[in-house]
Design a protein around this nucleic acid. Structure first.
Length: 353
DNA sequence: AAGTTCTTATTAC
DNA sequence: CTAACGGTAATAAGAACTT
């Protein structure tokens, strides 16, 4: 390759807003600053059923974390400020932030309300320059929105995200290509996107070692990983080595839309269940009424957390709410008939053609 | 036997 | 004293059913 088509060096930036929902609440309510703030379900004196969506660092000092049952968060810190999720507000702020980010490259992939990847390949010529860009972005976001964020820069999406994790909160971290593999070697295998608790447990069994590090998992060959984990296995082989070829691309249209509801108390009250279900169908229908759909799924979680689904397919087309309701209600009723257990959650989802 | 459809498991934010 | 646990979406794998 010693000619004119010298390959441009890939440079990817990952931006992640710090404790996003809670930080916005602090911004809107300065009197919260310095106090523990928890955004999520209503704790209801410790009897609430939801989870923590986001919390600030003061709340984390008490052991509270995202995804934790709100009842547990309440026990850990009953005096915290518990706030409901104000999604409208967070969406508006998210749009403002990423409008700023967009100016740094037209190639941007928003992963969620608070995270995005930006492809700087070709736009900047070096990691030194990329660092300056990142610092710039952080500065502008803070000046315009009074919110802090963290940024990671590296040779691919996965490494940029890991770099960002290391930068948190309110920081920036660059991992150059030569540093990549070595930097992640001592991290837990769950650092790799796609490796969650179940996959980790499987790896633990294979290695006869708990909390395996990435370096430990390097002993597996590509074909071994493929045997263990199928299609994902080959990906893991590369990711464990810091390699990730996935492109930065705009989020595509949703392939399905759904809604779920967890009851305050587990129930078999058909009136109530049907009433809620009807609302779910209506809400989903209003989101997709001008889209062609070709299937639907009904979800039921019983009191013991056992979760089942029933689905039907039909010809792609635009359907009325009544049609969707008629098609789905019979599936829902089967869940009531086929078990005497109380029901914890019901859900309704449609597949977009 | 191949092609859909249905169901569950896992992951991520 | 057991068990704390949302909502939304994607993807993969395998079973079940059709053709």
């Amino acid at each position: 390759m010693g000619n004119s088509k010298k390959k441009k060096e890939n440079i990817i930036l990952h931006i992640d807003m710090d404790y996003f929902f809670a930080q916005i609440e602090e911004r809107e309510n300065p009197q919260f600053k310095g106090k523990p703030v928890v955004v999520g379900a209503d704790p209801k004196e410790g009897k609430g059923r939801g989870v923590v969506s986001t919390c600030n660092y003061e709340a984390r000092k008490f052991g509270i974390k995202s995804g934790m049952p709100i009842s547990r968060a309440y026990k850990l810190c009953p005096q915290a400020i518990f706030l409901p999720v104000n999604m409208q507000l967070y969406k508006r702020v998210s749009r403002a932030v990423f409008q700023i980010a967009q100016k740094f490259s037209s190639k941007m992939e928003r992963v969620s309300l608070d995270e995005a990847y930006i492809d700087l390949t070709g736009r900047v010529g070096s990691y030194k320059e990329a660092r300056r860009e990142g610092e710039d972005l952080r500065k502008i976001v803070f000046e315009k929105e009074r919110l802090t964020c963290s940024i990671g820069v590296s040779k691919n999406k996965m490494m940029a995200k890991i770099a960002c994790e290391l930068a948190k909160p309110d920081g920036i971290r660059i991992i150059t290509p030569v540093q990549a593999a070595k930097t992640i070697a001592s991290m837990k295998v769950e650092t790799i996107p796609g490796i969650g608790p179940k996959t980790r447990q499987f790896i633990e069994k294979k290695l006869k070692k708990k909390d395996p590090q990435i370096r430990d998992a390097l002993v597996f060959s590509k074909s071994e990983l493929a045997d263990f984990f199928g299609k994902r296995g080959e990906e893991f082989y590369y990711k464990l080595r810091g390699i990730d070829k996935s492109p930065v691309e705009e989020k595509k249209e949703a392939k399905s839309v759904g809604k779920e509801h967890t009851f305050q108390k587990d129930t078999r009250d058909a009136k109530m269940i049907i009433k809620v279900f009807k609302r779910l169908v209506g809400d989903v229908h209003s989101q997709v009424k001008d889209k062609k759909i070709n299937g639907l799924t009904v979800v039921c979680r019983y009191e013991d957390f056992e979760t089942h689904t029933k689905q039907i397919s039909f010809d792609a087309g635009k359907y009325t709410e009544e049609f969707l309701y008629k098609k789905s209600i019979s599936l829902l009723l089967k869940f009531l008939t086929q078990s005497n257990k109380k029901i914890r959650l019901i859900g309704f989802r449609v597949k977009i053609a």
